[in-house]
Design a protein around this nucleic acid. Structure first.
Lengths: 207, 207
DNA sequence: CCAGAACTGGACTGTCCAGTACTGTTGCCT
DNA sequence: AGGCAACAGTACTGGACAGTCCAGTTCTGG
């Protein structure tokens, strides 16, 4: 038998269930996903699913919270910008570009939809995702801006507010479009436009 | 028999069903709402519900689209601003305040959640709501800004983009919070802060 | 190599719910 | 008044699905 994945059989099944559940939940939402769907996609018996996760709610909560790990990748995308006065705008546009590209990935948007859609039924989940995902990225962005302000490149008194304004200028349009339409697929030129226009407004306000 | 409501019995029942359905859908979401719930709240037999609306999906679509009527009230809230150079900031803050207050009403936010949550299953509904609700308000806002630009009070080349930036600066924070948390209830001082800070940034970018 | 734990597969229970059927009642229109 | 269409109430059908049970199989660790 080839095992490939590390760990014992149980650990492999566990992982397979998580991956399958993530895929199905993200595609069909919570209510329209059945435990049989998940078991089938994971190539696992339903009993095994229930051996690993108490019930559907627990499984859902677990797979959603597991995705907050990926936040680290986003954080990398918005931290560390060269403090060079001459090419500040250029650097900020590059930052904005990374920011936009990362946060408008279909998977990220779909996950956002999933959490928002079920924030009624899982209030603690929505709150946790907001804090551990959203606000962590925002805090990193605020740090970056604070650093730039220390170098005299930006004029900022409330760095968190500035980070929110930056996000709002960049993301308001594409995120809204994505939330209301099934699958977004923003073209690269569109993102370019949002990035440059947003950065221009931001710099006008905060330089 | 007192009738009170205008129209015949049938029209009254129709209205009662719509109102009940709107209330229940907004409180519990689409999947968790049963037709019996709606019939009960409307004080109507289930058969009558099906006399007026073919099925659950049709009913849902109808009550959501019916809410786009209320957009007119929002449009009034963002149109018509005095073109007075001296008190431009003050007037814009007032506009921002109306804008924020209207769009962060719990009902508006809840409806937004409802549409976003079901945009998978009802794609045309999400798109229609976005266009007939969201974009109409945005277009009005853009008109207002274009008018101010004609008066020389703002420096704008793309009025729609400016309207989006204005919205993003003001709404990004409170709307996100509301989307991820069950019921938001923003305090008035918070809204004040968002309004003044957002307008300050906007004016820095577009004056 | 050999227990025991984990897994499979499928049947099964209980519940919820959309939508229908049916019988009788109430309101509306002429 | 009278006739019809809409209504109430309730029972029913059919399907979906969460969660359980069990009998037999496979893996794994000592």
């Amino acid at each position: 038998m080839e095992a490939n994945e590390p760990g014992g059989r149980s650990a492999r099944k566990h992982q397979a269930i998580i991956e399958a559940a993530t895929a199905v939940f993200m595609e069909k939402g919570y209510a329209r996903t059945s435990m049989d769907d998940i078991a089938k996609l994971a190539a696992v018996s339903k009993q095994t699913v229930y051996k690993h996760f108490a019930d559907k709610e627990t499984l859902f909560a677990e797979i959603v919270m597991a995705t907050t790990d990926r936040v680290d990748a986003m954080i990398d995308a918005v931290s560390g910008i060269p403090a060079d006065a001459a090419s500040l705008e250029e650097n900020l546009v590059r930052l904005a570009h990374r920011f936009l590209t990362t946060l408008t990935h279909p998977q990220v948007l779909q996950l956002r939809r999933l959490v928002v859609a079920n924030a009624d039924s899982f209030p603690e989940l929505g709150a946790a995702w907001y804090e551990q995902g959203f606000e962590r990225v925002l805090a990193t962005l605020a740090d970056t801006f604070r650093h730039l302000a220390d170098q005299g490149l930006l004029r900022i008194d409330d760095a968190t507010l500035a980070a929110n304004h930056f996000s709002g200028l960049l993301l308001w349009i594409p995120v809204n479009k994505a939330m209301f339409h099934g699958s977004p697929q923003h073209t690269q030129p569109e993102l370019d436009h949002y990035a440059t226009a947003g950065v221009r407004a931001f710099l006008a306000a905060y330089r």
